[in-house]
């Protein structure tokens, strides 16, 4: 197990392309995680809000963040598939 781990590290060290792709996927995951937290927070605020105008603004924000998340998840899925086929 240790040798395998070491070999993987050495391979990663020499293979810049794979490292870049991993880095990009990691960044996507990090951004998606932030968006998830943001959406959750906005939904919580919407539950507490009674003013119709402010509720409408919050709903628009939620819709926007949700669309961004869907797009991000799709991108991540595509990258994963590309990695597997490559």
């Amino acid at each position: 197990m240790k040798t395998r781990k070491l070999l993987a590290r050495i391979r990663a060290f020499f293979d810049q392309g794979a490292a870049d792709s991993r880095e990009s996927q990691q960044a996507l995951r990090e951004v998606l995680e932030k968006l998830k937290r943001k959406e959750r927070k906005l939904r919580h605020n919407l539950d507490l809000e009674r003013n119709p105008e402010k509720r409408s603004q919050l709903e628009q924000k939620i819709l926007l963040v949700h669309s961004q998340r869907s797009k991000g998840l799709q991108l991540l899925k595509e990258e994963n598939e590309r990695d597997k086929s490559g």
């Binding site: 990691q26 951004v31 797009k71």
Partner: peptide, 24 residues
Amino acid sequence: RDLAGAERQIALDPGELERVLEQQ
């Protein structure tokens, strides 16, 4: 740099923004 790259990918284009507006 890595997060900015990911965000640029995720940011909505004009057509996608239009759809969000229509949905709302």
